[in-house]
């Protein structure tokens, strides 16, 4: 299946969890995740399974005003 992570296409096995997406992306902590604009608590990464066309956002701390 194909999903997007930070708006870039990624191919993952059907029914992959967020943990697998994190590994495919190579995310470096600290980060937080939203799936289709809904926040996903880090404790739920392993039990949240992705579907074709899902949009994952992985964000990190940056400077802000």
């Amino acid at each position: 299946m194909e999903i997007t992570i930070n708006q870039k296409p990624f191919k993952l096995p059907q029914g992959a969890s967020i943990n697998e997406a994190i590994e495919a992306f190579g995310a470096q902590p600290p980060f937080a995740i939203a799936l289709n604009l809904t926040f996903v608590h880090r404790q739920r990464y392993g039990e949240t399974f992705l579907s074709q066309g899902d949009a994952l956002e992985i964000v990190q701390p940056v400077a802000g005003g």
Binding site: N6, Q7, K8, F25, A27, Q28, P30, F31, A32, E57, I58, V59, Q60, P61, V62, A63, G64, G65
Partner: peptide, 24 residues
């Protein structure tokens, strides 16, 4: 200190990521 969040692969013009986190 005000801080923000941005996509991990983006933001190379901004102070961000692990280095910024270490500084904070």
């Amino acid at each position: 200190l005000t801080v923000s969040l941005r996509r991990q692969a983006a933001g190379h013009n901004e102070i961000g990521g692990q280095a910024f986190w270490d500084l904070l």
